[in-house]
Write a protein that binds this DNA or RNA. Structure first.
Lengths: 214, 214
DNA sequence: TAGATTGTTAATCGATTAACAATC
DNA sequence: TAGATTGTTAATCGATTAACAATC
């Protein structure tokens, strides 16, 4: 199969398409043209067609796209047609927020394990999942073939944990710690750097004020 | 002043520069060349120089960049040399995680108010801040000249809250709800769509497996 | 002064948009 | 068949990288 690499710019847009298609589906809309979708989503129709055509021809000339079909196809592309097991490392507020976020469960991300360094938490339960000491991570990941580890630990623990997880076959790390992780190429990393996001917000406040006041 | 608009691609990289410069500063390093920074950060030296030069010449030929000076300049560009008041709307786990995140406080984001729809929470405290009923938001924002509202509420409440906040002079919304907000141009929006991020992770797991197995 | 390294211009690369032939 | 709208090629735009003159 000709494995042309899709740019991350395109990938980054797929979840948003998926979200809008899900809404259209729920509203019972059967078909949509790239132009109609363009109006709703505020992106060009041209970009929509280009994006979809990276993965194959999902539409039909003179008709447009079938909403449900397109929705299903995007879910396959994103790999959320299958289940993914997930463990949470660091059971603070953020870890608990993620554990309790039902939307993830709905998308096939199944919460299987929770780990922390605080002995007082061992044995307590989050969503029917027992909190375990961090020492048990390797055993757990190997035994349960865990795919995704959510890192919601302080900065200084993140790098060594990422290294440990990489060694025992984890497939991906969803990193909320404010450091760049250095892992082998068989481990996928997706960063959520909240303070970076907040700084961008701050920049844009500033920029707008300078633009208007001067 | 010639207000050339800086691309969001550049802005998006500033927080990362800021983070690395902060680390260098802490390690007592006084000067750094674009080439050295390039090695550490894994971006081209050329990009580093281009990025900084969007905002002015911060370096010196033959010497490089003074770490502390550059750090301070970037903090000014990002607007984190000033304080920003912040309220949290929706006091679930995510809201609490943000309220308790000390790093934000350190960067000048001061947590001033908390709001929720659950009457049982009214009057309870999060980090010395009393939880108030959501009806009081307008009064609070106006009286306290609140700059940033953090939206950690369910999807269906987010749009109407964004509209209400826009009307009473909020400067920015940090949106964690899984919808695109539609606000006037004087209100800055920064989205954190966690499920989008998780889907990208899922895509990359998939992609890697297809690449290696086929 | 010589060496180092920036600031900046020019070249390249990639992503977005426009246009239109193919086709349902 | 005629009209609509895709899939795809070509044109444009913007962002990244390379190169080098300016200068500390």
């Amino acid at each position: 199969m000709a494995e042309k690499e899709i740019s991350q710019a395109v990938i980054g847009r797929l979840p948003r398409y998926f979200r809008y298609l899900g809404e259209l589906k729920e509203r019972g809309i059967e078909r949509i043209s790239s132009q109609e979708l363009s109006d709703i989503m505020k992106v060009t129709a041209s970009q929509i067609r280009q994006d979809f055509n990276n993965f194959g021809g999902f539409g039909q000339q003179g008709y447009g796209y079938n909403v449900e079909y397109l929705y299903d196809e995007i879910s396959k592309i994103l790999g959320i047609d299958k289940q993914h097991s997930l463990i949470i490392i660091g059971v603070g507020h953020l870890g608990q927020a993620i554990a309790n976020y039902t939307n993830f469960t709905r998308r096939g991300f199944v919460f299987k394990g929770a780990f922390d360094t605080n002995p007082e938490l061992y044995g307590t339960k989050i969503k029917d999942v027992e909190v375990r000491p961090i020492e048990e991570i390797e055993d757990f990941v190997i035994k349960n073939k865990t795919e995704i580890a959510v890192l919601t630990v302080p900065k200084d623990q993140a790098k060594s944990l990422a290294a440990r997880l990489s060694k025992c076959g984890i497939k991906a790390i969803w990193n909320f710690a404010h450091v760049d992780l250095d892992v082998p190429e068989n481990v996928q990393v997706e960063n959520v750097h909240l303070s970076d996001s907040l700084m961008k917000l701050s920049y844009n406040i500033n920029r707008y004020e300078n633009k208007t006041k001067k």
